[in-house]
Design a protein around this nucleic acid. Sequence first.
DNA 1: ATGAAAGCGCTAACAC
DNA 2: GTGTTAGCGCTTTCAT
Lengths: 336, 336
Amino acid sequence: MKRQVTIKDIAYKLGLSTSTVSRALKDHPDISSKTRTAVKELAALLGYRPNRIALNLRSNSTRTIGLIIPEIEHYFFSAIINGIEEIAYKNDYSVMVFQSNESYKREVINTNAVLTNRVDGVLVSFSKETNDFSHFQKLIDNEIPVVFFDRTTEDLPADQVVADDYQGAFQAVNHLIEKGCKRIAHFAAPQHLQIGKSRLAGYHDALLKHNIHFSHELVFLADTFETARKTAHEILRKPNAPDGFFAVNDISAIAIIKAAKELGKRVPEDVKVVGFENSKSAAFSDPELTTVDQFGFELGREACLMLLRRLKEGENTDFQPVRKIIRTKLVVRNST
Amino acid sequence: MKRQVTIKDIAYKLGLSTSTVSRALKDHPDISSKTRTAVKELAALLGYRPNRIALNLRSNSTRTIGLIIPEIEHYFFSAIINGIEEIAYKNDYSVMVFQSNESYKREVINTNAVLTNRVDGVLVSFSKETNDFSHFQKLIDNEIPVVFFDRTTEDLPADQVVADDYQGAFQAVNHLIEKGCKRIAHFAAPQHLQIGKSRLAGYHDALLKHNIHFSHELVFLADTFETARKTAHEILRKPNAPDGFFAVNDISAIAIIKAAKELGKRVPEDVKVVGFENSKSAAFSDPELTTVDQFGFELGREACLMLLRRLKEGENTDFQPVRKIIRTKLVVRNST
DNA sequence: ATGAAAGCGCTAACAC
DNA sequence: GTGTTAGCGCTTTCAT
């Protein structure tokens, strides 16, 4: 990089001290308007821009937010990043992105990286592998504000922003029942994840409300395209096959539709399917997928806003973790 | 943030000078092994970690890469970010993400932000609106290495990494012809974008190779779901409707399939469709979409590698811009 | 083998 | 209204 113009250069050329220049640049009242304009003009002329690194060192802050996220390529997460970047941008913060790739080990390295980079705060959605949270505790011990989003835990006294998984699941299954489904299967996420639990609970309670018997035999662990397709194939072939499916995400739902079609079943006539996420693919699938919108963009915005609020608070005496729930919304299309 | 342990703390507790501690920490040969271990042990005990900001100030570098990108939510771009982050991670660089949201104005602000943040280098894919490049010239004037990817320009003497759009388009159309299509339409991107031009050229030349007449009447500007669907509806209803479509991206291709089905045409029997990108949606559509894989992950990797190479070079006397072309590959599925 | 001192760019308390 | 000085945390030259 080219040698940058510093406050010293301006001071020298104008026969002033660096402090005067510094003050002039930030409209300190003491400075005469003559010097002020002279300084500002020269600064503009030379293309001076304050050295953020020096400022960082002095202020011991970087105006940077660290983001630790499983997989950027997943639509939901990219929507969240979008929301985060939007709020950060508006508040003159920058965002550093670290991917865990769903790996616990890498996630630990990521937490060290955010510490090393001296970010002001951290936003985290942890990996599927993670069930030890001491690396996040380390952040908290360093008094770096952390906000967890989407994938959260009760094990840590930290702020959280999550989608209303329970309500979304409840609505989805309720919808299936109202559409006439009698036997509804649930393709679930791993139960050590909060979203796995909450969505199952919503499914369970919706059945209950309509006096439909809940059976573990209708709950399957299937949250990827491949496993969902395979599982759907198996159970749709059986005599007592389900007539409705509530999948924990859109990809699994699309896989179910695919399997049904391959077996000559019609969607939604023979089998109805609801997903969760409202990804782009949901609108493009055939039939178009009924799904629960998770509002990733909103969620990202809220998580970032919450973090910024914490940053503004500064040293807080008694920390009270906040949990914010982002509404979800059933989007009815043609798969039900 | 908690007050961090510094080299000074260690020096004080051990009755040493900061320089000795500094040297001990980095295994300077002059330091006796006794002090070295003492220092290291205490450092570990206190949880010392070097203050990157101070290092940054001294070294005048941040080990950070700035990324300016139109839209994170687009699958192709998120794949690219993934590739970039992967390489950055392996080389101990961090990535700061700035979205332009396809806005020229915001992109200009983004370039200022990367300057302000004193990133070591910048990766750019510019917005659709951009046709003045002076803001990027400013980066170059500051001798900050810049690598352009995907959306590039000849107007700037800079490194570039692009997909082989021409070859991909050529293969796609060639494939349609070999599958028996006689009348092939092209849904194109705006022609002020290089990708718009290159893909049209590939389409043109593939027709030429097979002695098929090229007609402007079969080229439509349609690179979004909505416009593609509407356009496809119109032209598929006409008597002399195309029997093949080459779309500039997957979304448009999926829209074409949808329109065809809505009009009672079978894909691929009556109409064959090829997309471009190989997004997730392509594999999930029905029928599964034949498309050209753009290898976004690879592209991101290469762009980042190229940038890191420039960073290693340092002050180069005579700069020769490099243009790297990432191969594309036709992925044949069931829509052709 | 270790320490003192200067300096990266900037700000701010303290002089005058 | 402006200058002097110290200091943020670290490295490195120059002493000893």
